[in-house]
Design a protein around this nucleic acid. Structure first.
Lengths: 350, 350
DNA sequence: TTGTATGCGTTATCAA
DNA sequence: TTGATAACGCATACAA
């Protein structure tokens, strides 16, 4: 019954583990061992097999492994809506980490306000048998999501603007510190009448950025009247509306911190519509350093966070157990943001 | 510490086809038939099985199907670099089409100038056993890529700025017509001294947009001196450099068409640096209608192409054979772009 | 150190 | 119209 499998090695069809075993004159299991670098095996046989693998260009079939292991070599990226550039940078970071591994990245947008959010995510994870998942804010701020991941046995890393989980499950920027520093810069430039366009309710990042802003003002003993806080939703349109309120204040603020660049662009736009000179009559500070920041006139002073590096680190945390060469101890959980000084901030001119 | 953590399956480990078969009192194959809506089977047994499936919340394991079918239910998105918003909109369109199907989307960036581009893509497709792949420009313009897909038996749809393939394998915008119309608008406004910042060599879209520009000028018997064509690379920086050349021309052009918004933003930026008023002294026309276009001051008049719809259509073409409810005859291959008139174009003021 | 037999969840081939 | 049974490619107890 030793019916030799027909050498139907059409150039198109990839070789299987059986082909390798046959060519190397060993059993499948032995080949499996060198693939998984597991178990102890003779140096000669290993080299022999490795040679055959190189020659044939054999690559293990991920689907078969997935079936056998009950787990896929897929990393999921779950996001809601945040800005396009952030998601794409995140993708780039993740893919950086996945390069030259057998992992691939699947992207899944979800609706954070849907009552079935948790179920949708579970469905996605379980169905695709994800190896791990990277969760972007604001969904990452939801502890129930993290718990669900743990329950279904899926690795996860949350990305956020503050440390919400232990180091193995978190990559965080420190928005509060970053905004504090940036606001200090505003104050150093001589501004005392400073307003803020906040981010949406329920976004941790919005709260962190507001807190950092308040920190700096409190340090300098500058009061923050209720009128100087206008609520935005991280969108251009909401930034426009918020700015209208702020520019009606008398005396008009000499500087506005917008909690993200999208809204900072709106502040600039609104100022232009009113003929207000930037930065002479109004300084503007943003957050994110999206591409738009450098393309506006004047270019935007803003806070840059290392999102690509964070994405890379997140993926590393997820796949470390399956890929050699990743030193988890060197994989940070906290990332520092930096102030990028451009033209939109200057001392106030009275 | 590289021990494989055991997949601690959630308490409610998902039912398999065997469970369904047992509960319904039929064979696996019969269950398989209702899942795949294939073959002819008794109405009663079908309903019986469907009821069991509903009750148990059974979902077929995609990995097992992938193994058995030799093909995964994954749609790949292959892109090089184009702008972030375009890729993300494309993703959105594809995911729209994939919603409520068993398909997922995996994203793969590649390097178009790598000598191993074809091999890299083949590796990706074959390894993941992709069901189909959406290829973005400029890679999509490479016929060898399409041929490789056909060779490995992977469905593909190319996205591009002109029809390069048959309707089943192509979603195309019509950049030439769109730019011709947009340039006509410039001419109608009274401009005769018009310059262009072109896109990179070898990009079909760049050639198409230039051709449309030339069409309109020729119609109006306006000459296009060599000096009025500055070469860009679709990047902000290249746009800056190109604009410097153009603004040195005497008499200075009263209008500039930039082959994408990124470079149009650069034209505006360069004009501001020189204190040139837009649109009074210089009209600017862009292409893409990326978010930045509406956020600049003045907001950019530009050409919008329906990229989300194109992504949706591309995915539909790929999965039509596996998903019911897609009418391929209604799935267009050519998409019309429209001119979005905003503030950056006005009649020239002498 | 290596091999055998079996399972993973599904589809495909035949026969009933 | 249905059902045994054999793939699909790999991993893992358990032997040898």
């Amino acid at each position: 019954m030793k019916g030799e499998p027909k050498p139907r090695m059409a150039a198109a069809s990839k070789p299987t583990i059986n082909d390798i075993a046959r060519l190397a004159g060993v059993s499948k299991k032995t080949v499996s061992r060198v693939i998984n670098q597991s178990g102890s095996l003779n140096q000669d046989t290993r080299e022999k097999i490795e040679a055959v693998i190189r020659e044939t260009g054999y690559v293990p079939n991920p689907q078969a492994r997935a079936l056998a292991l009950g787990r896929n070599f897929l990393i999921g990226l779950v996001h809601d809506n945040p800005n396009a550039q952030m998601i794409l940078n995140m993708q780039q970071g993740i893919l950086d980490a996945l390069r030259d591994t057998e992992f691939a990245m699947v992207v899944q947008p979800v609706n954070r306000s849907s009552p079935s959010l948790i179920d949708d995510m579970r469905e996605f994870i379980v169905r695709q048998r994800l190896y791990g998942v990277v969760i972007l804010p604001p969904i990452s701020e939801n502890d129930a999501v993290a718990q669900m991941c743990a329950e279904v046995g899926c690795r996860y890393v949350r990305m956020g603007s503050a440390v919400l989980d232990d180091s193995a499950h978190m990559v965080a920027s420190n928005d509060r510190d970053a905004v504090r520093d940036a606001t200090r810069f505003l104050i150093e430039q001589g501004h005392r009448n400073i307003a803020i366009v906040t981010g949406p309710q329920g976004f941790r990042s919005a709260a962190e950025r507001l807190a950092g802003f308040e920190d700096a003002l409190a340090e300098a003993k500058i009061k923050l009247p209720r009128s100087h806080r206008a609520g935005g939703e991280y969108t251009f349109e909401s930034g426009l509306a918020a700015t209208e309120q702020l520019l009606d204040i008398s005396p008009r603020p000499t500087a506005i911190f917008a909690s993200n660049d999208e809204m900072a662009a709106a502040v600039l736009y609104a100022a232009r519509m009113r003929g207000i000179m930037v930065p002479d009559e109004l300084s503007i500070l943003g957050f994110d350093d999206t591409p738009i920041a450098a393309r506006l006139w004047p270019p935007l002073t803003t806070v840059r966070w290392p999102i690509v590096a964070m994405g890379r680190s997140a993926a590393h945390k997820l796949i470390a157990s399956a890929v050699s060469g990743i030193d988890l101890d060197n994989e940070p959980s906290e990332f520092l943001s930096t102030l990028v000084r451009r033209g939109s901030v200057a001392p106030p001119k009275q």
